[in-house]
């Protein structure tokens, strides 16, 4: 049988916001460390570091995850999306526009994670109910807004992104 690699450090490749990247990681690096410190994608925030607050939420292979709880070595070969991927050619994503218009941002620390949870929801369910929105962002804490503006913004964004219904 072929020997399985034992790695202390390893060069891994994955996709971030549509771009292939290669990064050297160690066994104790987390995905958020790679994103923020090695790739300088500092839009993703670290709040609690234990998966309670959701500020570090990114989309991994189509699913929102806490990047503070993903060992970097598990990212090999994966497709990662961060808040930096939302804006396209200088134009904000409809979700970002709706967050601005509804004052769904105060301190802004939770916003990148909120946006990624919301984006994952709207891709799967283009016209969610308020209850479904609340569930989708139940892993994201906001200590400023009281959530109402955020839920309204996501509801509005769903109309902006898919006005057919």
């Amino acid at each position: 049988m072929k020997q399985v690699d034992r790695c202390k450090m390893k060069l891994i490749s994955f996709t971030v916001n549509g771009t292939d990247v290669k990064v050297e990681i160690s066994a104790s690096d987390r995905l958020i460390d790679v994103l923020r410190d090695k790739l300088r994608l500092t839009g993703t925030k670290e709040g609690c570091g234990i998966g309670e607050c959701g500020a570090c939420t990114v989309i991994m292979n189509g699913v929102p995850v806490n990047s503070c709880l993903v060992p970097a070595f598990q990212a090999e070969g994966s497709v990662i999306e961060t808040v930096e991927g939302l804006e396209q050619s200088g134009k904000l994503h409809p979700l970002q526009e709706a967050f601005v218009d509804h004052a769904a941002i105060q301190c802004g620390f939770c916003t990148p994670g909120m946006l990624m949870s919301a984006l994952a929801l709207l891709r799967e369910n283009p016209h969610p109910t308020r209850e479904e929105i609340a569930r989708a962002i139940s892993g994201n804490l906001c200590r400023c807004t009281g959530y109402h503006q955020i839920i309204e913004a996501i509801e509005d964004a769903s109309m902006r992104m898919d006005p057919t219904e």
């Binding site: 998966g51 995850v65 806490n66 993903v70 949870s117 989708a136 139940s138 892993g139 994201n140």
Partner: peptide, 9 residues
């Protein structure tokens, strides 16, 4: 269990 993010992992 946990949150959507935790259940995903």
């Amino acid at each position: 269990v946990g949150s959507p993010q935790i259940r995903a992992r």
